[in-house]
Simulated assay, not measured.
Amino acid sequence: MENAKTISTLNDLLHITNDRIKGFESVEGKVWESYSDLKGEYDKMISQSKVMKNEIINLITERSGNPDEDTSSLAGSLHRTWIDIKNSLPRSNNDKETLENVVFGEQHAIEAYENALKSGNLCAESSKVIAEQLRQLRTSYHQFHNIEHYKKKDE
């Protein structure tokens, strides 16, 4: 296993985690009036993302790599810009769309983590940490996906 491949793959996941944090921060407070019951879960996801970020940074530095600590992916930046534009338009369902965007972002993160694990580029220790983070991502995805599905039934 090439150390450079592990570091590169971990930095890619770090970008995804940074996307996740920035995405959460950009929608924070936008849906709590309508969905106040979600605030606790949402806060938990933000805290979880920050812990995941630190774990990935530690894995990179332990392998003598340089973590791209504050860098996000181009796709994540474009997605957040698109969400900001959509949310600036007058509509009655911005809260629902915000929840849908959380679910979309979680799907993207899950796919990136699955691809990283399948790539064979991660060392054993990194694979173990990333597999656990993937488990956490799937849990948060299912929580928000179920909530989004439930809210659609209320319409």
Rank of each mutant, 00 (worst) to 15 (best):
N115F: 05
E125V: 06
A131C: 04
L122N: 06
E106A: 12
I85T: 09
R91V: 07
K86F: 02
A124E: 10
A109G: 06
H108C: 01
N94D: 13
C123S: 09
E111Y: 05
S119A: 07
A109Y: 01
V129A: 10
A131S: 15
K128Y: 09
L134N: 04
N93D: 14
E106P: 00
Q133M: 08
L117Y: 10
T98R: 06
K118G: 02
T98I: 13
D95N: 12
S127W: 00
N93Y: 04
L89M: 09
E106Y: 06
N93R: 04
N94F: 07
K86C: 08
V102S: 11
I110G: 02
V129T: 14
I85Y: 08
N121D: 07
N115A: 13
N121C: 01
K128T: 15
I130G: 01
D95R: 04
V102L: 15
A112H: 13
N115T: 09
S119R: 02
T98H: 05
G105P: 00
H108D: 13
E106M: 05
N101S: 12
L134H: 06
V129N: 09
L89D: 03
A112C: 12
T98K: 07
S119E: 11
S126P: 00
Q133A: 09
G105M: 10
N93I: 06
A109M: 01
A131H: 09
K118Q: 12
I85W: 02
S92R: 10
A109L: 02
Q107T: 03
K118M: 11
A131T: 14
G105R: 02
R135L: 11
Y113V: 09
Y113T: 11
H108Q: 11
L122C: 04
N93H: 04
E100S: 15
Q133L: 08
K86D: 13
N94V: 12
N101G: 09
A109K: 00
N101E: 13
I85G: 03
N87L: 09
R135A: 13
F104E: 14
K118N: 13
V129H: 08
K118F: 09
L122H: 06
C123N: 08
Y113N: 11
L134A: 06
I85S: 04
V129K: 10
E111W: 02
C123K: 01
S127N: 03
A116K: 03
A112K: 14
N87W: 04
D95W: 00
V129W: 08
A124S: 04
V103S: 05
S119L: 03
S126F: 00
N87G: 05
E111I: 03
L99A: 14
V102G: 11
P90V: 08
R135W: 09
E125W: 01
L134F: 03
I130W: 10
N87R: 14
Q107D: 14
V129F: 04
N93A: 06
F104C: 01
Y113A: 13
Q133N: 13
E100G: 10
L117M: 09
